[in-house]
Simulated scan of single mutants.
Amino acid sequence: MRRLFPLTAPSVPAPDSENTVVGAIDPTDREWTLDELADAYAYPAADAPERAGRTGWLRANMVSSLDGAAHHEGRSQPLSGDADMRIFGVLRGLADAVVVGAETVRQEGYRPARAREAFAARRAAAGQGPAPAIAVVSAGLGLDFTLPLFTDPLVPTLVLTGAGAPPDRVARARAAGAEVLFAGEGRGVDPARVTGVLAERGHTRLLTEGGPKLLGQFAAAGALDELCLSLAPVVAVGEAPRIMNGPAVAVPERFALASVLEEAGFLFTRYRRA
């Protein structure tokens, strides 16, 4: 893996040695450790300027083919690769909660997040539990509550829905062990309220893995703070949607490039709200 942006710092001889450099970034192509990736993708501190006025930080992680497909035949795995999966694991290892749409849960066969020893010390120091909670966004709650995601998670699965959701489905979700949170007055979720509702439960470092419809709703509502986009060196063609598929915005919102990594032809980009 190589860092392509920010640009590497120039080598500066240390005062006490002609061979030591100060502040240089290693540009060589090598496999980064999980700790290095975790440092590179760390959430901004609560008092960071970019967090001003926001109850939490919502970042998205998505993969796209060169021709803009968000998945192939309904699943993102065919677009992924080893480095992409390492980053996927790191982003989960840093998050308080993973926010995902109901359709993605069904298509991708979501399971509970697992605890990983590599992130145990980092999570403990940050006051986090052993693994992130999975927060499923669903209006109708048409979910299979007998799946391990609901019956056997390390930390309780959250279900985000509207106050007008079917009462019988709400009862079934709770009976399965899920915690139901209301983030909207109607049947569905108001995407602008999700960050605040989860922050009330202590979940401020948020990661969404889509799908495209949910991510589009977050972006249109101005709720998306950061996008981690993996550009895969493949062409998928077909009729798959792009990574965001939601209501149009009156004016396109500007995001600023934060970093670019490269490995095996994949580009791992990170953009933050400008």
Rank of each mutant, 00 (worst) to 15 (best):
M62G: 01
M62F: 15
M62P: 01
M62Y: 07
V63S: 01
S64Q: 13
L66E: 02
G68R: 11
G68Y: 07
G68I: 13
A69C: 11
A69S: 13
A69N: 03
A70D: 13
A70S: 15
A70F: 05
A70N: 04
H71T: 12
H72S: 05
H72V: 13
G74M: 07
R75T: 08
S76T: 15
S76Q: 11
Q77R: 12
Q77D: 14
Q77E: 15
P78V: 08
P78C: 11
L79F: 03
S80W: 05
S80R: 08
S80A: 14
D82R: 05
A83H: 01
A83D: 01
D84W: 03
D84R: 02
I87G: 00
I87F: 02
I87N: 00
F88Q: 04
V90W: 02
V90G: 02
L91V: 12
L91E: 12
R92Q: 13
R92K: 15
R92A: 06
R92Y: 06
G93N: 05
L94M: 12
L94P: 08
A95S: 15
A95G: 12
A95R: 13
D96R: 01
D96G: 03
D96M: 04
A97E: 09
V98I: 15
V98E: 14
V99R: 04
V99D: 05
V99Q: 06
V100D: 04
V100Q: 06
G101W: 03
G101I: 14
G101K: 04
G101H: 08
G101F: 10
A102I: 10
E103I: 12
R106P: 02
R106S: 12
R106E: 14
Q107H: 12
Q107Y: 00
Q107K: 15
Q107I: 02
Q107G: 00
Q107F: 02
E108T: 08
E108W: 02
Y110K: 02
Y110E: 08
Y110T: 07
R111S: 12
R111K: 11
R111W: 01
P112V: 07
P112E: 05
A113R: 06
A113Y: 00
A113W: 00
R114C: 01
R114S: 09
A115T: 07
A115F: 04
A115D: 12
A115M: 03
E117P: 00
E117Q: 11
A118E: 15
A118G: 00
A120Q: 05
A120K: 01
A120H: 03
A120E: 14
A121I: 03
R122A: 08
R122D: 02
R122F: 07
A124R: 15
A124N: 02
A125C: 08
A125D: 12
A126Y: 10
G127A: 09
G127F: 07
Q128P: 01
G129A: 14
G129Q: 10
G129T: 09
G129K: 00
P130N: 05
A131N: 06
A131F: 13
P132K: 12
P132N: 13
P132W: 10
P132E: 13
A133W: 08
A133K: 09
A133V: 13
A133H: 15
A133S: 14
V136E: 02
V136L: 10
V137R: 06
V137F: 09
V137H: 09
S138D: 11
S138H: 12
A139V: 14
G140T: 15
